[in-house]
Design a protein around this nucleic acid. Structure first.
Lengths: 235, 235
DNA sequence: TAGATTGTTAATCGATTAACAATC
DNA sequence: TAGATTGTTAATCGATTAACAATC
C-alpha cells in the first residue's frame, strides 16, 4: 500500500512541469512502421489482431509491441487483442497525421518534382500549397497541379498562409539560407533533403533529415560485410 | 603481462568462428555521419582533430567517438588526435565506398530520374549502369546520360553485368516482383524506395529501405509534440 | 467459468558515458 | 620531459525481453 503511494507520488512529481509522459525516441521511430502494417491489415479487411500475431508479422517481440503501445495508453483489451481500426486511428492521431498540416516545397528540381507528384503527403493529411524555385522559366507554371512561385516570395507566402512544414530540396549551398527564411517566416518543421546538417535547432523549428547518401553507404557496408563473411568461410 | 595475455586469448576465442569482431548496428548507423563531417573538414583544409573538438561539432560525447572508432582499430594517436584524411579514408573503406559497386535503377519515374541526376552515387564510388522501365516511349532514350531499357531486360542485364546494387523506385504493386527478379539475377543489395517492406531477406540479398513516408510522419509528430508542449505551458 | 491476451513489473541485455592509465 | 589525447576498462543508464497477475 504505502509503497504504491510512494511510486504514484514520484510519478506525479516527475511530470509536474512537462505535462506529458515523455515517450522515448526508440518508440517514436517504430510507430510509423506499426502504422504501416496496421494500415495494410485494415486494407485486407482484418478486424482484430493480437500482439503475438503482429509480432510474427513484423519480426519483433510481442513484448515490445505491448510495451510500445502502452507508452500512450491501453489500446488493447485483455483476452481479445487490439482492434485494428481503432489502433490505426490512435497511432494516426498520435503521430499528428490528423492535424491537417500545410507544406511548401522549396526547390523544383527532380526531387522537388518527385515529391510534388507523390501521394505521400495526402495520405498523411498534409496539403502541399506551393513550389518555390529560382528558375524564372518555371515560375508561374504548375507542376502536378501545384503552382510554382519565385523563391523570393517564400517568406511572405509562409507567413501569410501560416505554413507548417517546409520541404527543402534545394542544392546544398542554398539550403541554410532557405531554411532560415522558412524558420523566420514561422514554419514549424523542416523536412530536409539537402545532404547537409542544418544548424538551426535554436530557431524554434524541428528538423527531420533525410540523408539518402547515408542510406546508400549503409547498403554498401552491408553488401561488403556479407561478401567478406561468405568469401572468408567459403573460398 | 599475464592479464594481457589472458585478454588476448579471450579475444581470439570469441572471434574464432565469425572472423570479424562484429560491430554493433548503433555504431554502423553513425558511421556515415562521421564520414560526412570528416569530409567537410577535409574540404576546409583541416589536417587533424581531437575527439573533443569533433564531439562539439557533432553534438555527441567525445567518449562515444573514441569508442565508435575503436570498434575497427586504433585510428588515432595519443596526444595528437585523429588525422582527418586518414580517418576519412578508413571510414570510406569500412563502409565499402571504395569497392566500386555497380547499380541499376528500376523505375524511371520522378524519383528514378532524380536518382539518375544526382551525384550521390558517384561520390560513393557507385556506377549507375542503366535505367529500366515499362514505358515503351522512353525505352532506348537516355536520361541524364543513363540508358533506359525495358524492364523485361532487367534479369539478363543484371546477370550479365554482375550488377551489385538494384535501386527500386517502381510503384508499390510492382516492387516485390521486380525485387525478386533482381535477387534471382544475383544482385547483392536492394535499395528500396517503394513504401513497402520486402520480404526477401531469405534470398541472400541485403535490403536497405528508405521509408520517406515514415520520415514525414516523424516530422509531423515532432511538430505536434512541440506545439502541445508550448500551448500547454503558455496558453 | 475457462481461455486468451493484455498491462505492467522485474530481469536481462546492450549501449552510452565517465574515468584514467597508456603513450605519443 | 610535460601536456595532450587516445584506447580501454568500469560504472551508469536506458531499452528490450521475460514473466505473470489482472481482466476481458
Amino acid at each position: 500500500m504505502e509503497s504504491i503511494d510512494k511510486v504514484k507520488g514520484t510519478f506525479e512529481l516527475k511530470n509536474r512541469d512537462n505535462a506529458k509522459p515523455t515517450v522515448s525516441d526508440a518508440v517514436i521511430k517504430r510507430l510509423p512502421r506499426y502504422h504501416r502494417y496496421l494500415g495494410d491489415l485494415l486494407a485486407d479487411g482484418r478486424m482484430r489482431i493480437s500482439s503475438a500475431e503482429l509480432s510474427k508479422l513484423m519480426n519483433v517481440t510481442a513484448s515490445q509491441i505491448r510495451q510500445d503501445l502502452n507508452c500512450f495508453g491501453g489500446f488493447g483489451q485483455q483476452g481479445y487483442g487490439y482492434n485494428i481500426k481503432y489502433l490505426h486511428g490512435k497511432i494516426s492521431e498520435l503521430l499528428g497525421v490528423t492535424q491537417g498540416y500545410t507544406a511548401v516545397i522549396a526547390g523544383a528540381g527532380n526531387l522537388g518534382r518527385a515529391l510534388a507528384a507523390t501521394r505521400m503527403f495526402g495520405r498523411r493529411g498534409v496539403t502541399r500549397l506551393a513550389l518555390f524555385d529560382v528558375d524564372e522559366s518555371i515560375v508561374g507554371t504548375e507542376i502536378y497541379g501545384i503552382k510554382v512561385y519565385h523563391i523570393d516570395e517564400l517568406y511572405d507566402f509562409c507567413q501569410r498562409e501560416k505554413v507548417a512544414i517546409g520541404v527543402l530540396t534545394v542544392p546544398k549551398d542554398a539550403a541554410y539560407k532557405v531554411a532560415m527564411t522558412m524558420a523566420h517566416a514561422g514554419v514549424k518543421g523542416i523536412w530536409n533533403f539537402a545532404s547537409t546538417e542544418l544548424e538551426i535547432e535554436c530557431e524554434n523549428v524541428v528538423v527531420e533529415n533525410v540523408h539518402m547518401g547515408d542510406s546508400l553507404m549503409r547498403l554498401c557496408y552491408e553488401i561488403k560485410t556479407k561478401d567478406e563473411a561468405e568469401g572468408g568461410s567459403d573460398a
